[in-house]
Amino acid sequence: MTSCHIAEEHIQKVAIFGGTHGNELTGVFLVKHWLENGAEIQRTGLEVKPFITNPRAVKKCTRYIDCDLNRIFDLENLGKKMSEDLPYEVRRAQEINHLFGPKDSEDSYDIIFDLHNTTSNMGCTLILEDSRNNFLIQMFHYIKTSLAPLPCYVYLIEHPSLKYATTRSIAKYPVGIEVGPQPQGVLRADILDQMRKMIKHALDFIHHFNEGKEFPPCAIEVYKIIEKVDYPRDENGEIAAIIHPNLQDQDWKPLHPGDPMFLTLDGKTIPLGGDCTVYPVFVNEAAYYEKKEAFAKTTKLTLNAKSIRCCLH
């Protein structure tokens, strides 16, 4: 018999989150649709729960009410004593943790798909938090293969000092899905179709896995975050240069030392320094102006996964 890495157990509980950011409308629209008619997301033997994560922000069509829901799922915020004085999103995070967690427990949901849009030209993107997770690498390989020839990129946010504390991190297997470009507060049919297909293929993978299909060893190309880059700023902290036209919409493309990065209003080009080629992502993302992030630098690498098969009882 072929030796293989056996994944822990079959997958039982899956959640699909929309509206973690209330103005990213593809996930909101799909989740609302699936709450009314969820036939397309159901798979035999699998509990799939669509869920609106930040209903107040969705109602106002804004990213958040008090603070970013997708950055506060750490033990400090989840452990705060519940009171009306807490920011709305912290209270909501505790409610979500109660419903789908608790985080880092045996009772937490197996998989959470968190649906997002970006204003950046990132196409279909899967966000991975753990480079050693054979199950998710296999799932992402399946999704990428199923979507081809449509490109699907994998963004690895594993980093020693950049801690995200994402909404989906309460699950055993957290999956971020990011599709763009799409303006905030807008629905685009092409973007919706791409996100819908990503979810379909992900659920198909889980179904095949649960039925005992063995997935042979595989490898995927990923883009691992190195650092986030702020806009150049003046002495008052105001933005002093904008994304250069040569960099705009060039997510995932190589940016070499000396290539144009920013452009000042008086026409001066600010190039990339250093001696390493990087791959920019979230270029000129609207939501990241407040976070002082013009783009993120990534490096390209390959992740390998062992063969996996479900432990059938």
Rank of each mutant, 00 (worst) to 15 (best):
E227M: 04
W252E: 00
E235N: 14
F140H: 04
I157M: 15
K103C: 10
K228R: 15
T62K: 14
H33T: 15
Q184E: 13
A202Y: 00
I220S: 02
A219N: 14
D230T: 14
L247Y: 03
L115A: 02
R196F: 01
Y173I: 08
I72G: 14
T298F: 03
I225S: 14
D259G: 05
A39C: 09
E76V: 08
P50G: 05
C124I: 09
L272V: 10
P271T: 14
Y109A: 08
T125M: 07
P174A: 15
K291D: 11
Y173P: 03
A165K: 07
D230P: 15
Q194Y: 08
C218F: 00
R233F: 12
T62W: 06
F140P: 01
L272P: 00
G101A: 07
D114E: 09
D259P: 01
L303H: 00
G274R: 03
K197I: 13
N246T: 15
L303Q: 01
K13H: 10
E24M: 04
I225P: 07
I239C: 06
T119I: 03
G27H: 00
K268W: 05
I157F: 10
I177G: 02
L272W: 08
F17W: 10
V48S: 04
L162K: 13
N134F: 11
G212W: 01
H21L: 04
Q250F: 05
L115N: 03
A148H: 15
E235T: 08
Q182T: 12
I177W: 01
Q182Y: 02
T44R: 10
K297A: 09
T53F: 04
E89H: 05
R91F: 12
H141F: 04
A202Q: 00
E235M: 15
P257Y: 02
K300E: 03
L30M: 08
I206W: 00
Q42F: 10
A294W: 01
P174D: 07
P280W: 02
E95N: 12
A57M: 11
E24Q: 13
L263A: 08
E238S: 14
I96M: 11
P102D: 14
K297L: 15
E76R: 07
I226K: 15
T53G: 13
E290F: 08
F135P: 00
R92Y: 05
C310H: 12
K297I: 14
I157A: 15
A93R: 08
C152T: 07
L301P: 01
E47M: 12
H256F: 08
L69D: 08
N70L: 12
L25F: 15
F135E: 01
P217M: 06
E8A: 12
A165S: 13
I137K: 06
I96H: 07
N77Y: 12
D110C: 04
L247F: 05
Y279I: 05
D190M: 04
D234V: 05
T26W: 01
F140W: 00
V175P: 02
V281D: 00
M139T: 01
K253C: 08
R309Q: 14
E293V: 14
L312V: 15
I6S: 11
K103W: 12
D110I: 00
I127D: 01
P87M: 11
Y155Q: 07
K103G: 12
S108E: 13
Y288E: 11
H21N: 13
L150M: 14
E76A: 11
G22V: 08
S83K: 06
V31T: 07
F215N: 02
S3P: 14
C218P: 01
Q194F: 09
L25Q: 08
Y173M: 13
A286D: 04
T269V: 12
N54E: 04
D68P: 05
N54F: 04
P245I: 03
S307H: 10
V283C: 12
H21Y: 09
D259N: 09
E106N: 13
D74T: 10
T302Q: 10
H33L: 08
A305F: 01
L192A: 15
H244G: 00
C310A: 14
V222L: 03
R168G: 15
P280Q: 02
A305D: 01
K49S: 14
N284S: 10
I6E: 10
I199D: 00
H313R: 14
T269I: 09
Q94R: 07
F113I: 10
I72C: 10
F51R: 04
V175A: 03
Y88H: 12
L147K: 00
D130P: 01
Q94S: 06
P174W: 14
C4K: 14
T26I: 02
I112K: 01
R91T: 14
H208W: 14
P280N: 00
C311G: 13
F100W: 07
L126D: 00
H207E: 11
N133E: 05
E178M: 06
Q94F: 14
I239V: 10
E47T: 15
S169P: 09
Q250T: 09
A241H: 04
F113V: 11
A296P: 02
L247W: 02
G273W: 05
F215S: 03
L265W: 09
G19A: 04
C310T: 06
P87V: 13
H33R: 08
A148D: 15
Y231F: 14
L128Y: 01
Q42V: 08
H33V: 04
N304F: 10
I6K: 09
E47F: 06
E214C: 14
C310Y: 14
C124L: 13
E95G: 09
F262E: 00
